[in-house]
Write a protein that binds this DNA or RNA. Structure first.
Lengths: 181, 181
DNA sequence: ATCAGCATGTAAGGCGTTACATGATTCA
DNA sequence: TGAATCATGTAACGCCTTACATGCTGAT
């Protein structure tokens, strides 16, 4: 029955908080959601069109001449809210992880160990940058945690911090092991 | 130029250790690699055929009548080895993570917090099972670590243990936060 | 004048999953 | 006899990315 396109759920979830445009949706994904899900314009705009046909969202073309190009604000419908809740209540969840870094490491015996060390160091740099950002989010969120809505964002940030700190510990440990070879 | 199909690299990596069949490749992926990459028969067999045409692998149909159906053993070619090494030496690596669990949690404010708690508990159960397995792998590997080849497997197992332990800490912490709401 | 950012959308094509088709052997 | 496992492969289909097309506004 229901198609399994998760980008639909991302969109419905964001629209459940407030009306926004496809462009806003992309910005939101890139801001907080990117740590555990991704989405491009090429998937967002077609999804919005398909969901409008299915009456999960609707739009009223904004005609405020305040400048810039036309902005199409989408809003979630009752049917859309129902679809979102059904998905949230369904216990099944697929976590699909693809670490090319780990894949390269697994086959590292085909090349010199210095190559693998460099690959881990590259991975480490990206993690360090994101971790700084996540800690900033956490500190800000802790000042406004009384607002119920922020708790869910807060928890996902804690997830990022916990896993990223684990990544860093592993990077140091594994580089040390490879250096001793 | 080179297509970016990572399943090719998984296959080349496995064949760089020993000749094997498509079926064996699948078993290997499901055993150790599944923690950071996946692959189905529907991608493995076509990939083998395409790579044979590109002369990255070759096969000699086994005609031992020892029973069972025909088994086609593939072996990596010199060109295949070169392709594998080029990929390993290329510093770029894409880690694409899709946590549906986190996505549901992020939008948890649309439903009762007991739903989110149940979703986290479900996630926790899967992690616990895999963690037991990973610790078993680690203990076994530590007895044969002198063999160079095992170090790379060992390090990826340590990665799994480090991140999975982080997941468990986070599960407990976040359930506690949600219970207090 | 030009570039970056805002904003919407389409087209081509790659990648991968699921389900199906086929068939042998082993074990209860 | 029937189920499970071994074993290879195809077909349909879905999802997503990249690149492209278009055009406005504001800052340098």
């Amino acid at each position: 029955m229901a198609k399994d396109r998760k980008i639909d759920m991302v969109i419905l979830g964001l629209l459940s908080h407030e009306d926004m445009t496809g462009y806003d949706i992309k910005k939101n994904i890139d801001h907080a959601i990117r740590f555990f899900w991704k989405g491009s314009f090429g998937s967002i705009y077609p999804a919005l069109a398909a969901m409008e046909k299915d009456e999960l969202v609707s739009h009223k073309a904004q005609e405020e001449k305040s400048g810039g190009r036309e902005r199409i604000f989408y809003q979630i419908t009752e049917k859309g809210r129902k679809t979102l809740c059904d998905w949230l209540e369904d216990r099944a969840a697929v976590n699909d992880l693809k670490y090319e870094t780990l894949l390269k490491l697994f086959f590292g015996s085909s090349v010199d160990s210095t190559i693998s060390i460099k690959n881990i160091e590259e991975f480490r740099r990206g993690i360090e940058d994101d971790l700084k950002l996540l800690r900033l989010y956490r500190d800000n969120l802790e000042t406004i945690l009384n607002e119920r809505d922020h708790v869910y964002f807060y928890i996902t940030v804690l997830f990022g911090i916990e896993t990223y700190e684990g990544y860093l510990r592993w990077c140091d440990k594994s580089i040390e092991i490879l250096r001793k070879m």
